[in-house]
């Protein structure tokens, strides 16, 4: 008689491989065959994992189609099964999985589109942080602004792609009307993903904005962050940008 642990590892093995032996021998053969009974569990596991990815990556689904997405979901489940019970984290590895997949070499932009969708998922569950910045700034000497290390809302993600990933994502949203064609040579995209008052947003950023926010995210004081932004984009409107991010709740505090 197998130990409880052996039985569980055996059933796990079946769920991953679909091979009923040897665990089927431990299943009572009454009425429906053991293989059929085991199959129920395999369908449940693979079905729910596929659903988790479908919920998280609708643009990828639109881009590759139902059948190929089902294959990718199956492949991902078998090679990257969940390491924790909280399924909200399951898709974290999916963007890189797509980027490294042997059968997706012709669709090199998938990884970055999936990264956008994953960033939205992370933003949805990120910690709350109300903005304290306006009041505090009003009480701060203007000549100290350069030293300030601003803090971004915990949901903020900054993504860069050599492909027009944001545009590809947009045209593959359910309900998108109009032209779905995107010229892959449109150029790189820089995107802010965040959870704001209005909900999850994906905002296209200029080179300067991207650099400003990235430097701030890395903990650089405002002077250094501004210098970097202006170096990348000499006509970058610094004051306007700062106001925008504070107003939207992307910048929430400073130290």
């Amino acid at each position: 008689m197998p130990s409880l642990r052996d039985l569980q590892l055996g059933l796990l093995d079946y769920l991953r491989t679909g091979r009923p032996e040897p665990v089927a021998a431990a299943v009572r053969p009454a009425g429906l065959a053991p293989e059929r009974r085991l199959q129920i569990h395999r369908n449940n596991v693979l079905g729910s994992l596929r659903q988790a990815l479908t919920d998280c990556f609708p643009a990828i689904l639109a881009l590759v189609g139902d059948e190929f997405f089902a294959y990718l979901a199956y492949d991902y489940a078998v090679h990257h099964p969940p390491a924790e019970a909280n399924l909200n984290r399951y898709g974290a590895g999916f963007p890189d999985f797509l980027g490294n997949h042997a059968r997706l070499a012709e669709l090199p932009y998938l990884r970055d589109v999936a990264a956008l969708e994953w960033a939205r998922q992370e933003a949805y569950h990120a910690a709350d942080r109300p903005s304290a910045v306006l009041g505090r700034l009003a009480a701060t000497d203007a000549d100290r602004f350069g030293e300030l290390v601003f803090l971004l809302h915990p949901s903020v993600r900054l993504l860069r792609s050599v492909y027009p990933a944001l545009r590809i994502w947009e045209v593959n949203q359910p309900g998108h009307e109009g032209d779905q064609a995107v010229n892959l040579d449109e150029g790189p995209s820089r995107t802010l993903v965040a959870r704001l008052e209005a909900g999850i947003v994906c905002v296209a950023l200029s080179a300067g904005e991207f650099l400003l926010l990235s430097e701030i995210a890395a903990g650089r004081p405002f002077q250094a962050a501004s210098d970097a932004a202006l170096a990348a984009q000499p006509r970058f409107q610094l004051a306007e940008s700062l106001q925008r991010w504070i107003g939207l709740g992307v910048i929430v505090d400073f130290s």
Partner: peptide, 21 residues
């Protein structure tokens, strides 16, 4: 049970009804 060998399976899996279990 829903996990074994560090892998989580998102399905409620059956126990054998033994003294050990």
């Amino acid at each position: 049970w829903t996990s074994a060998g560090g892998i989580h399976l998102n399905d409620l899996l059956p126990l054998p009804y033994t003294e050990e279990a």
